[in-house]
Simulated scan of single mutants.
Amino acid sequence: MLDLGQRPLCSASLVLRPRGILGGRNPMLEHGTTAKRSDLAREAALAAAVRRFSQQSYDQVGLRQVAADASLDVARVHRLFGSKEALFAACVRRAFGGWNWTSTDGRSLAQEIAQDLLVEREAPEGDPLQMLVRSVSDPHAGPILRAWCEESFLEPVARILRSGGRPVSEAEVAERVALVAACCFGIAVMRKVMAVPALAKADASALSRRIEHLLSCPLVIEEAPHSSPEILEPAS
């Protein structure tokens, strides 16, 4: 059941200060056409929700908290998104975005992903990796995160694998793609969330080459070796 109640924050360090609030109202939402105000309200709610979900787990965040942070009425947030699950799904798409890979084969894709993993990105609204680790085990949020992963990461990689190299079964493609995702998300979490020094402080160029080598194993599908023709012994 959707929880619209106000829940206590885990600790004082997680208290979020609402932005753009003046006397309990957001003046930016009081001008313009109805459609424009609706767009502004949606943006305000999304930004507030991304911050919340980046600092608290899915079950700790309520629509009332998001509405208060965005200076909106909770009923309006509910009308804009329909449910907490739909709001979280919109936050996942907004926070993680997608990848604009240009590679058409596994070898170049390994290089492109390795470089992309080490790009430092600004996250003014909230850290998507924090959103992932805080809510991936939740029975409501987990399926949403998996659906995003399948649509935005697994399937694009699978399409590239299917288009090159020797023909492989769908089961093998799925296994290879899952290994790539496991490597990428594992590296990202250990480097950015856990701040493991060996990864967080590594030379970016050298680390990129090692990640590329690691990803090449599942991404590069070599042609099957040709077997040597059988040599028949002369009949005695």
Rank of each mutant, 00 (worst) to 15 (best):
M1Q: 06
P8I: 07
L9I: 15
S11Q: 11
V15L: 14
P18Y: 01
I21M: 02
N26D: 15
N26Q: 10
K36W: 11
R37H: 02
A41N: 13
A44R: 03
A45H: 07
A47M: 13
A47Q: 11
A47K: 04
A47Y: 02
V50P: 06
F53R: 13
F53E: 07
Q55I: 06
Q55L: 12
Q55Y: 03
G62Q: 09
Q65S: 08
A67I: 08
A67N: 12
A68E: 15
D69K: 01
D69V: 08
D73Y: 04
V74T: 13
V74A: 14
V77S: 02
G82N: 09
S83K: 05
S83C: 10
S83M: 12
E85Q: 08
L87H: 04
V92W: 02
R93N: 01
R93H: 00
F96T: 05
G97L: 04
N100L: 01
T102E: 15
T104G: 04
T104S: 08
G106R: 09
A110C: 07
Q115V: 03
L117R: 12
E125L: 09
D127N: 04
D127E: 01
Q130S: 05
L132W: 08
L132Y: 10
S135W: 02
S135K: 12
A141N: 10
G142N: 14
L145T: 15
S152I: 08
L154R: 00
V157I: 13
R162S: 05
G164A: 11
G164F: 09
E170H: 02
V177G: 00
A178G: 09
A178R: 14
V180P: 01
A181Y: 14
K192M: 07
V193N: 03
M194K: 10
V196D: 00
V196T: 00
A198K: 08
A206I: 13
L207R: 11
S208K: 08
S208V: 02
S208G: 06
H213N: 09
L215P: 07
P218K: 11
V220C: 13
E222W: 08
A224G: 05
S228R: 15
E230P: 01
P234N: 12
A235Q: 13
